[in-house]
Design a protein around this nucleic acid. Sequence first.
DNA 1: AACATCCTAATGTCAGGACAAACTATTGAC
DNA 2: GTCAATAGTTTGTCCTGACATTAGGATGTT
Lengths: 246, 246
Amino acid sequence: MANQLSLSIDRSSPVPLYHQVVQGIEAAIHSGILEPGSRLDNEIDLAAQLNLSRPTMRKAMDELVRAGLLVRKRGVGTQVVSSQVRRPLELSSLYDDLSNNGKKPTTDVLSFSHIEADAATLTALQLPAGSKVYHFTRLRKVGGKPLALMENWVRDDITSMDEAQLAKEGLYAILRRGGVNFRLASQRIGAMIANDYQAPLLEAEVGSALVTMERTAVDDTGRMVETGHHVYRADSYSFEMTLVQR
Amino acid sequence: MANQLSLSIDRSSPVPLYHQVVQGIEAAIHSGILEPGSRLDNEIDLAAQLNLSRPTMRKAMDELVRAGLLVRKRGVGTQVVSSQVRRPLELSSLYDDLSNNGKKPTTDVLSFSHIEADAATLTALQLPAGSKVYHFTRLRKVGGKPLALMENWVRDDITSMDEAQLAKEGLYAILRRGGVNFRLASQRIGAMIANDYQAPLLEAEVGSALVTMERTAVDDTGRMVETGHHVYRADSYSFEMTLVQR
DNA sequence: AACATCCTAATGTCAGGACAAACTATTGAC
DNA sequence: GTCAATAGTTTGTCCTGACATTAGGATGTT
């Protein structure tokens, strides 16, 4: 009711209609046109307003519900949820996160080697014995201040890489250019105390708090592409996410 | 091809058909009938085998892809992803998590009060000035060993609660019985060092690593129901999750 | 005035069809 | 033998239509 939300749908665009709707409503919410708590028109009217079918409209709203921007209730309607909630955790790299926020991260490559994988890596990446992997440690800084210390293992049968590349761009950018389509990642977040090795690199005291993250990423063919162990200064980094009830 | 996966669909059941399919395939994967890496029949054949329409079949597979169990590729087919990946982070409480894993958590209520909310809480729960909230701190133990120290603020206009209830069951169970339907939660995970207050309660050294979690939960009407600040012993708890590329 | 009942509006589920786009593998030409 | 065009398979998108289920208000009765 009373929410015209004049989106424009471009049927000749290659981007799917439902996704155009998602982007439109997302923009309307972030720009304040759709206020938190306000109710949207019902699905059928909305679909009619945009000359779309109801399933298409529903698919768009499904995504927004999953993203935590909308809340639906049968027999009642659809509401804009408080904009205070944050974006869900996405499959992206720290480099992407920082770049998107306008920061300019730099990377020091502390070590780089192309070696035979040890047992733990073979298991994590599900590789046959004797496989070789890239192994490297990097220090990421933002504004000259160290933020993260990252150790990664990457299978070598996808794309080749070298130290210079890693210093210039993010690991995920390199892999994506190498033809990897990431599909999902499994990660574990915990905490630890900075040890003698980590502390000086991160310019922190030995014994200060660090956030730890272990991640293994899988591509669209089901291959384990990369596994890593990262630690972050707890005073500069934390993980934000929105959980949605299914 | 060659994957019959003989599911049985009960059309008289109140549980939606697509959800029955989700459960069936999920069970087949976990029981090993569908091996990691194996390809499923195409959507149309699968739908025909189960006497379902393709949209219904697709909706089921959509959920499984989102859950990280399947991987689809246009022009190729659908594959079972390695079962090594873990469950996605769900909107549940620590109490639920532990109970589901067969552990028997106990709860000490350290403090409990029904007071006027301070400024930070008013903001977090988006309440009008002068509102009252429940405020309490709890210590959760598993097998007699302290695991988490939790401080929560809950709005009081939904359901009443007391110390005895909190000692006996989880906060989310109480709220759900009070008619709250949780929809989403926004949370932030980080790390800190145990201080003089936390360390003895958690039976840890001052200066040991703690995982911190701040969460605000929203119900299906868009109300902020609960906000809390929890700390966990880093040697006993970490957050596992599966991220899926959209 | 309090309660139970009916009605309405909205989302939830399901069907069947059509075409588009992407990937594979085969076929054909050079 | 190598490369490019082509055909076939499979998922991706979009449509129309129908009925079920739920929440909440309106209505009527006691």
